Simulated assay, not measured.
Amino acid sequence: MGENNQKIKLLRIMEFLRSESEAGKPVSTNQIINYLKGHNISCERRTLYKDMELLIESGANIVKTELGRENAYYIDEVSLSLAELKILIDAVQATNFITDVKTAELVEKLLAFSGIRRSEIVRDNIVLYNNHKHSNGDIYDNIEQIELAIRQKKQVSFYYFDLDEKKNRVYRKEKKRYITDPVALVFSEDNYYLVAYSQKYQNAVNYRVDRMDTVEVEDTPICEEAQIKKRKTESYTEQVFKMYNGEVEEVTLEFPPELLGAVYDKFGEKTIIRHSDADRLKIKVTVQISPPFFGWLFQFMGKMRILEPPSVLEKYNKCIRDTLE
């Protein structure tokens, strides 16, 4: 057998093992030989033993075992469980900022990574339900450029746009480039955002990645303030409540036990819960005082109350009064 044919044979063996074998489900020598025959590659049992030893000695994660009286093999690689694969695919489909085309491509890649058996099981149970996908096909390029800028601690620039009633792009600032100091990429409420530091406002600014066009890494390094924020990325991005800017306040909220699930969903299961009185609970949380925060409170129709500070309660009441006028 020529060198090229030998390489093709080894690749086909690895292809078969990756798609059909796993721990607890090895493939036999005969199965491998029959698979090769199906691809017009002849292989004797004795030759296959040598091929398998060569692959193992070369570092392939192949485990040799027995299936009945035959030698058998499987790939011992970290792979996704059915549950993990299903969760990832559903997450991709539910995400708005990934276009329909990119969603289909990414789902196929996940299925291919999981092997034929698992992919067939999951494929039969895929439910297509998100009809609100966005249309920016450059989303991957945008993310890659922003990630590069963050790693290199360089400024990033881009055009920023909205959509009009005909879904045409309307560029802000008369299509002048935005230049900002990137800190982190944050996924929130079905969208992907760039959290950056504004030297002009000396505060956080946020941009939707799917509303960016022609993202480029600049030569200028990010400022010292942005580097400080970058080193404290987790606490900095936590302050960006619902992607709105606002004053950061420690707020005490009081609510009935029936809203405990909503509190954990919003602020996390590590939130410290205290008793306020016999039938009510309270928490202290740090949030940005913003319309989304007030909107979150309002949905509970008075069951979630602001206890402290009085200034935040007054702002909330004013927001309600302004809405009713």
Rank of each mutant, 00 (worst) to 15 (best):
A184Y: 14
R46C: 05
N245M: 14
I62Q: 01
I139C: 05
C223L: 11
Q239M: 07
I228L: 10
I272T: 12
L80W: 08
D213C: 09
T180E: 10
D138I: 11
F97C: 04
E238R: 14
P292R: 00
R280E: 09
L54I: 13
H132V: 15
T29N: 03
S21Q: 06
Q239E: 05
F187V: 14
F293I: 04
T286H: 05
N34A: 11
R274L: 11
Y236Q: 00
Q227M: 05
K7M: 14
R46I: 12
S290E: 06
F161R: 00
I320V: 06
I121V: 06
V217Q: 04
I289P: 02
V312K: 06
I272R: 12
Y129A: 06
I89S: 03
S119A: 05
K284I: 15
C223W: 02
N130P: 09
V101N: 10
A104V: 14
K64A: 07
E325I: 13
M243E: 01
L82P: 13
A23M: 15
L55T: 00
H39R: 06
N245H: 13
Q155E: 06
Q31C: 03
D213F: 12
L253S: 09
A196I: 01
N203K: 13
Y171W: 00
L10V: 05
D162S: 13
K315D: 11
R117D: 09
K166D: 11
T214G: 10
F267D: 02
F187C: 07
L307F: 13
S188K: 05
N168P: 07
Y35A: 10
K64P: 00
Y236V: 01
V263N: 06
H39P: 04
S81R: 01
A104L: 10
F113N: 12
E3L: 15
K200Y: 09
C319L: 15
E325N: 09
K175T: 02
F16P: 08
E108H: 08
P310K: 10
D279A: 12
Y35P: 03
N5H: 13
I139L: 06
H132P: 08
N40L: 08
Q299C: 00
D124C: 06
M243S: 06
L260Q: 08
E269C: 08
A104K: 10
I320E: 04
N136F: 08
G261M: 05
C223F: 09
K318Q: 11
Y49T: 12
E218M: 15
E108R: 07
Y197E: 01
Y192N: 10
D190S: 12
V248L: 12
E84H: 02
L55F: 04
F255G: 04
V240P: 06
Y316T: 12
T271C: 11
A149K: 00
K229S: 03
D277A: 04
R118K: 11
A104D: 09
T180A: 07
V92E: 00
